[in-house]
Simulated assay, not measured.
Amino acid sequence: MRIASRVIGGVLAVTLLSQLTACGSIFYPDRRGQIDGKIDPTIAVLDAVGLLFYVIPGLIAFGVDFATGAIYFEPGKTAQVAPEKLQEAIGADGKVDNAKLQTIIQKETGRTLPLDDPRMIQFKGSVQQLASLGLQPAA
């Protein structure tokens, strides 16, 4: 009997604590700082579930998500760089120079990407992908 009450108390505490931190701020930390936009229905529903079961934490979740802007969709920012300009970042041995690539991307798009981040995962492309862009394999 004692173990069951401890488990229930622990689950309740974790649930309340997670609602206090707000769903959108946890799931999409990169959305913080927005002041308006289209509301993400997924985050709104998750906050509403918190409101349904736990009124005060649900209100706090909504308040935090609206205050931080995490409840809004990201604005539709897209940027493209012509494949020909990216050729400058490929060395003679066929390897991509991240510093040159970062400079090209920043110059063309105005955005800085953390290409030197150790958590970045690089995927190798295929010959078919290069052909679809009109490029020839050069290594």
Rank of each mutant, 00 (worst) to 15 (best):
K77F: 06
D93Y: 12
G69I: 00
A70R: 02
A67H: 11
D93M: 11
A82F: 11
P83V: 04
T78K: 08
A89G: 09
V81G: 06
P83N: 00
A67Y: 15
E84K: 11
E88K: 11
Y72E: 06
A79H: 14
Y72F: 15
A67I: 09
I90T: 10
D93Q: 02
G94C: 13
F66E: 00
I90G: 03
A92R: 10
I71V: 15
T78W: 09
D93S: 13
V96R: 03
K85P: 07
P75F: 07
V96K: 02
E84Q: 14
I71C: 08
P75M: 05
G94Y: 12
A89K: 11
P75V: 06
A89R: 07
K77R: 08
Q80R: 10
L86V: 12
D93N: 13
P75E: 00
Y72I: 13
F66K: 02
L86D: 00
K95I: 04
G91Y: 07
P75D: 00
Y72G: 09
Q87G: 05
T78M: 09
K77E: 01
A79Q: 09
V96Y: 08
A67Q: 05
F73I: 04
A67N: 09
G76H: 09
Q80P: 03
I90E: 03
P75T: 04
G76E: 08
P83R: 01
D93H: 10
Y72V: 07
P83Q: 04
E74L: 15
A82M: 10
Y72T: 09
G91D: 08
K85G: 01
